[in-house]
Amino acid sequence: MTERTVVVGAALLDAGRLLAARRSAPPELAGRWELPGGKVEPGETPEAALVRELREELGVETEVGDRIPGEWPLRVPYVLQVWTVRLLPGSPDPKPLQDHDELRWLSRDELWDVPWLDQDIPAVREVATRLLAS
């Protein structure tokens, strides 16, 4: 069986909006939008990886909530798992520090206004059902 690497994505929710991040690298992904996050390092839990990645990529302090059901294949050996995340009180506003050149808070009606990366679309659909419920 092939070893797989988990990539964690953040469905960062605030006031009924979802944070989307536009990739600036690598070139084949630049200009497309994703849920921010990154690879889980050896010995790290997915939740800890998400908190670390969001601190590195966006400069924010967060609390991880529920895992969105499902996982989505990326390039072998990577698989995407997504959690809901919220900003902790007192956290600065997110800023695109690395890998991204723009951030946008999207309301339920704006979710499909950006060109999402293909692998993020099923996760965003799942998150949309949660936004509808909120």
Rank of each mutant, 00 (worst) to 15 (best):
T45D: 06
Y78D: 13
Q98N: 09
P69M: 06
A11P: 03
L50N: 13
G31N: 06
D118I: 01
T62H: 04
L131M: 09
R17A: 10
V79C: 09
T84W: 07
L74D: 12
D14V: 07
G9I: 03
D101Y: 13
W116Y: 03
M1N: 11
D93K: 12
R75C: 05
E34R: 08
W112A: 01
G38N: 06
E41Q: 15
V79L: 12
L29I: 02
G43S: 10
D99C: 08
Q81C: 07
V7Y: 13
E3D: 14
P42G: 11
V124T: 00
L12Q: 02
V60S: 06
L54E: 07
A21S: 14
G31K: 05
L19Q: 05
R55G: 15
A48V: 06
A48Y: 05
Q119E: 13
S107W: 02
E110I: 00
E61T: 13
L87N: 10
R32L: 15
L117R: 15
T62E: 04
L54D: 04
E44T: 08
S24D: 14
S107R: 15
E47M: 07
G9P: 02
T45E: 07
E63R: 15
Q98P: 00
L58C: 05
R108N: 04
P69H: 03
G16C: 06
V82Y: 01
W116G: 05
V8C: 02
P42E: 14
G43Q: 01
G70S: 11
P115K: 03
E34I: 03
T84V: 10
L54A: 07
E61H: 10
I68D: 03
T129H: 06
